[in-house]
Design a protein around this nucleic acid. Sequence first.
DNA 1: TGTACATCAGTGAACGCGCGTTCACTGATGTAC
DNA 2: TGTACATCAGTGAACGCGCGTTCACTGATGTAC
Lengths: 197, 197
Amino acid sequence: MTTSRNRRGQGGRLRTKILAAATELLDAGGDERSVTLRAVARQAGIAAPSIYPHFLDQPAIMVAIVRQGFADLTGRLRSAAAAVEDPLSAVCLTYLEYAQRHPQRYRAMFGDLWHPVTADDPTTLAAEAIRVLVDSLTACVASGQCVSDDPALDAIALWLGLHGLAHQRAVAISYPWPTDITQRVAPLINASWRHQP
Amino acid sequence: MTTSRNRRGQGGRLRTKILAAATELLDAGGDERSVTLRAVARQAGIAAPSIYPHFLDQPAIMVAIVRQGFADLTGRLRSAAAAVEDPLSAVCLTYLEYAQRHPQRYRAMFGDLWHPVTADDPTTLAAEAIRVLVDSLTACVASGQCVSDDPALDAIALWLGLHGLAHQRAVAISYPWPTDITQRVAPLINASWRHQP
DNA sequence: TGTACATCAGTGAACGCGCGTTCACTGATGTAC
DNA sequence: TGTACATCAGTGAACGCGCGTTCACTGATGTAC
C-alpha cells in the first residue's frame, strides 16, 4: 500500500496499519486462526519482524483487535444512549447492529475464553459496554417508561438475550433466521420491563 | 491405558477411545486449538497414523465431538421433556445444566462457525435440539399453562435467551455472576409466555 | 490336528509446511558542530 | 553551509518446532485345507 517507509518519529503509524490488516484478516477469514503474525505481515505488506516493535507477540495483536472492538462498540452505545426518544431501544438496536455488521469481530470479543489478567482485560471492557445498557435501563425506569425492581439484574438479563441473538447470528451465518427476527424478538426480550402502550 | 491391541474385527473400538481422548483434551485445554491430531494420539496413547483408519482427517475429529455433544444434549432434553410436572422448565434447566457442566463442549458446539455441508451438519443437529424446546413450549400452550400466539417463534426467542446465558457462562468463567443467576434470569426470560400463578 | 497363509490393527520414520521468533543488517532521516 | 554521525524504521535469512499426512512395515489373529 504505502510506498515509502514512515518518517522518523512516525514509526508508530505502522501500528495502525498492522491492526487494520489484522482486522481485515479476521473479518475475511471468519476465524481467528487466520490471524497469524506472518499472515498479518503479508496483509500489511511488510516483513514479519517489523511487527515486533509495535506488538509484544502474536497474541498481543488479537488483544489489540478485541480492545479496539470494545472501544468502538462502547462508543456507539453511548451515542445511542444519548438519543432523545426511547434511548433504551436505541441502545439495544445499536448493539445488535454492531454484531451483525462485524460478526467475526463480535465473535472474537465475546466468543473467546476470557482470561482476566490486567485491569483492561476483555471482561472489564465488556463490563464497560454493558454498563451503558444498565444506565439506560435505570434511566428508563427513573423516567417511568419502564418498571423494574432490580435494574442492574434486569439489565444483565436483557443483555443475555441480546447476546444470545447477536452471537448466534454471528455464528450461524446460513441459518434461516426469519428476516424480521430483530423486530420480533427484541420486544419479546424486554417485554417484561416495558409498559405496553 | 489398554495394554494390548484390539482383536480382529474389533478395530472400531479404537474410534471410541480416540473420541474420548479428544474430548478430554477439549475439556482440559479449554480451546479447540489444543485438539490436534497428534495431541489426540498422545492422549490416547497411540501412534498418530493410527487415527486415520477411524477419521478421515483432523477436522473430522472435531466434527465427531460436536455431533456426539449434540446427540448427548438432545437426549437429555428429550428425557427432561418427558417430566410430568412442568416439562418446559425442566427442559430449560437441563439445557443450562449441560452448558455449565461441559462449557468447552458447549462452546465448540455453538461457538464455531457453522458450515452447512452435509445433512447432519451442526446447524441441523442444533435444530434438532431446539425442536425439543419448540415442542415443549407448544405442549405447554396446548395444556393452557402458557400463552403464545406463535410458539415456534417464541421458542426460538426463548432459546436465544437460554443460549445467551449458557454461552456467556461457558466463556466468562471468572465473571462474577450472581450465584443465583439461573433462578433469577430464567423466569425473566420466559415471563412473557408464562401465566403467573 | 497341524500348518500355510491372508487379513487386519497398529507402528516408526520421514516428508514438507507455516508458524513465532531471533539476529545481524541496511539505508534513509535528522542533528551536532 | 557542509559534513560526520547517531538514530530510527524496516528487512532478509535463518532457527527450531509442532503440525497433518504418507509410506512401507510388523506382528498377532483368524481361516482354509
